[in-house]
């Protein structure tokens, strides 16, 4: 199910629940991740400075600091992805943390498999920021970012500039959540123009062009209240 990373990747887990820390340590160590643990936000930030982790798993409900503020503090100097853990029904906190620099989220309770898949997607994305893959294939869909071409079943599909920008951002962040805000900031420089409803219309049109069954999206999934996620498989 899970392929271990080729080298030991440094992961920092910040969670005040001892049982969760223990469980994550056991799950991650078994897959050759190098895990450091912190129980509070302050300890987490110190440990991050010490170990320079390649990925941070951060619980949003910490006793000493707002999850959002922890994200901001870490983001001030760190580029490594941050995966936040939240409970259902706490959408606002989640969105605030994502806007403050977190990269993706996982709702508790979660399965080990889900956590590992999210982590892999984030690490993959962090790596591809250095070397962006020129082409992505998912089922019948091929996206060539460099040439700005999109093919469905080998036939080129013409997208509007906005649709292509949306697809490109989603594909570059495959398997990771892309928030409405990230998309809108990329699409429209002018803050006045940023309208989530307009964004939805563009996504809907994009789905019609690239989804095998547009009425039941398979590639572009909606993350309610948060954004969209491109799932290649």
């Amino acid at each position: 199910m899970t392929s271990a990373p080729e080298r030991n990747i440094r992961v920092l887990v910040i969670d005040d629940e001892e049982s969760i820390r223990r469980a994550l340590k056991s799950v991650l160590s078994a897959r050759k991740y190098e895990v450091s643990l912190a129980a509070t936000a302050a300890e987490g930030i110190d440990t991050a400075i010490e170990t320079n982790p390649e990925l941070v798993v951060l619980d949003l409900a910490l006793p000493d600091m707002d999850g959002q503020d922890v994200c901001k503090e870490l983001r001030a100097w760190m580029t490594a992805p941050i995966l936040i853990l939240s409970v259902r029904g706490n959408e606002t906190d989640k969105i605030q943390a994502l806007d403050a620099g977190a990269d993706d989220y996982l709702t508790k309770p979660f399965q080990a498999g889900e956590l590992l898949a999210r982590m892999r997607a984030l690490l993959r994305r962090a790596e591809s920021r250095v070397v962006s893959p020129p082409e992505l294939c998912a089922g019948d869909l091929t996206v060539n970012l460099a040439r700005r071409q999109v093919f469905v079943k080998g036939e080129e599909v013409s997208l509007t500039r906005t649709e292509f920008e949306i697809l490109a951002l989603l594909v570059q962040n495959a398997d990771c959540v892309v928030t409405h805000r990230m998309l809108m900031e990329k699409l429209w420089d002018d803050k006045e123009e940023r309208d989530p409803r307009l964004l939805r219309v563009h996504v809907s049109n994009l789905r019609k062009k690239i989804e095998p069954a547009p009425s039941l999206p398979r590639f572009i999934h909606t993350e309610p209240g948060v954004g969209f996620r491109f799932t290649p498989e």
Binding site: R200, P214, S215, L216, P217, H221, T222, P224, T231
Partner: peptide, 25 residues
């Protein structure tokens, strides 16, 4: 939560398939 009527629906226009796809996955 529902019984305590603490929940107010956050109504938004959505595509039916979008919701169904979210459920299926």
């Amino acid at each position: 939560r529902l019984a305590a009527e603490a929940w107010k629906p956050d109504l938004q226009w959505a595509e039916p398939g979008e919701v169904l796809s979210w459920v299926l996955f």
